[in-house]
Amino acid sequence: MIKWVVIFLFVCCMALATVLDPEFRRLHNRDNSSGGALAALMGDSRLLFAHEFFAMADAYFHSGFYPTIFDRQKPGTESDLKEESHDKSEDAKDHEEETSFLGAPKDWIDRFGRHFYPTVHTHLHGGDEREMLPWLQLSADLDPQAIDAYVTASYWLRTSLNKPGEAEHFLRQGQLANPDSFEIQLELGRIYLNNYSNAFVARNILLQARQKWRKQDAAGAKPDPHTYEAILGEIVRADRALGNLKQQLADMEELLKVAHIKENLQRQIAELKAKLAEPTP
């Protein structure tokens, strides 16, 4: 008799599970692609870990030379990893000799202890940048809205590691989770322009990036103006590759409105205008 009761209870449990499971999924929004199993398991704590994993990638970029929570950093300093991946100028990147966050040793224990951890500011190079990628992937997995993780990983994949396909695939994942991100769109445009040499597709992607930036600006979200300048700069480069001089001139004039260094751009615009004024044979 007890055997039949146990079987009956087991069947009841199974039947209830089939009814309740979809309800709970809907309740917790677990079938949302941006969260998945990790979101269900870790909840909001995953955002904390995502941030920590991005910091790990930065620490790897410096081969372990990285401040702890006890070390004081200059206020407003952005991580070198982000700066590098945002295609800043060489001058901005050339900071390997800058003063260390460690400062002068405070006592003999501090002085002696510095022999046991890296104290030289270096950056990964020569393909070793691949070592950061697992942390960036994990960061993006835990927080699909972490745009920096997608953009940074893509930058190293398409430049040092020469893997534009992997970079594009990763950015597409980021795009699914962040359909309004102009940063991801810009990075995607760069892959098509620099790695695939497909200026036509690159321009279309970059135009979408510009549209997304303007949409956010119009909505009062205060998007990063440097990224807007970068988008317009890449559009001009795509125009140049396509050989569309009229379009290039129009885009350059638009870029001139927001450019930080205008002299060189003004000279280029003048040259282009002169070229367009020349009678066609």
Binding site: Y60, G127, R130, E131, L133, P134, W135, Q137, A153, L157, L161, K163, E166, F170
Partner: peptide
């Protein structure tokens, strides 16, 4: 055994 970006030379992690 986990593959990151199809790169089998990643080892530091």
């Amino acid at each position: 055994s986990v593959s990151f970006f199809d790169d089998d030379r990643i080892v530091r992690y």
